[in-house]
Amino acid sequence: MYPFNFEYHKASSVSEAISLLNQHDGAKVLAGGHSLIPAMKLRLSDPGVLIDIGKIDDLHGINASKGAVTIGGLTTHSDLAASIVVPIGLSETAGTVGDQQVRNRGTIGGSVVHADPAADLPTMLVALRASFHISGPTGNRTVSAEDFFTGMFETDLEDGEILTAVEVADEQSGTGSAYSKLFNPASGYAMVGVAAVVTVASGKCTEASVVLGGLTPSVMVASSVADSLVGVKLEETSIAAAAEAVQNDLGSDVLGDIHASADYRRAMAPVYVRRAVAAAVERAG
């Protein structure tokens, strides 16, 4: 299929992109295009104007300094998957997105802004308590990942704003992160995606963050699971027990389709929580 026609502008800087965005009503930002172009080809999306930010140098690259890692919005999944400075769970998550070709073009910024409930990166970024740097006509702001995702395909990003970078804390020793995913056999999207970040000290879990994707209209923080993990010696039985608490987090609004009904996803949630937490614990050392 072929997209509708549109007006195309290439921005060479963030400020130019913001200015172009604000000059054109309904304009959309084009980064890697791996969420947008497929929708445009099926004529499900018809932006009259596209602002291509793909060549803005400032938005590329991963920089680690002072205990934080800043990931430019245009960093591809492929680069993220190969990075040794980002938390292991994040590179692992990026490696499960789509396929090699999609990872070579798709970007962290694009994935985050699209806020597909079946996406992978949002889940892990919320678990890592990432913050998102946003530039707009009135200046820059930072929002936490958890606050950023407001619903299915809905975010805190205002019209005219661009997500420029994602910031996560360095993974300290004693902390481990992991992602476990039930793939949609056709599309490769997450039907259940669980991100877990745990910190272990003296054999016990001191901090835990578990987040669910694919299950609900927007990423969901599994605080019941995290609460059940903290203060406990993490081994097979205690992890399994904590994982069962995910039912308290899920609520009634679980997604379902021909590949996996809501009942099945709900039943699989603890399995994948268990796997993600166990892997994170192992990485925490």
């Binding site: 299929m1 195309y8 290439k10 084009l30 295009g33 791996h34 172009i37 497929p38 080809k41 099926l42 291509d52 793909g54 492929s78 396929d99 090699q100 070709q101 999609v102 070579n104 073009r105 056709a186 599309s187």
Partner: peptide, 29 residues
């Protein structure tokens, strides 16, 4: 295909495999 699944259209773009059905020609400038 028209949903970026099949990979028949894969080419190397700056050395990396990409699905050329999911890249606008203007992006390949």
């Amino acid at each position: 295909c028209d949903t970026s699944q099949c990979g028949s259209c894969t080419v190397l773009m700056d050395g990396q495999a990409v699905k050329s059905c999911t890249v606008l020609a203007v992006q390949a400038d």
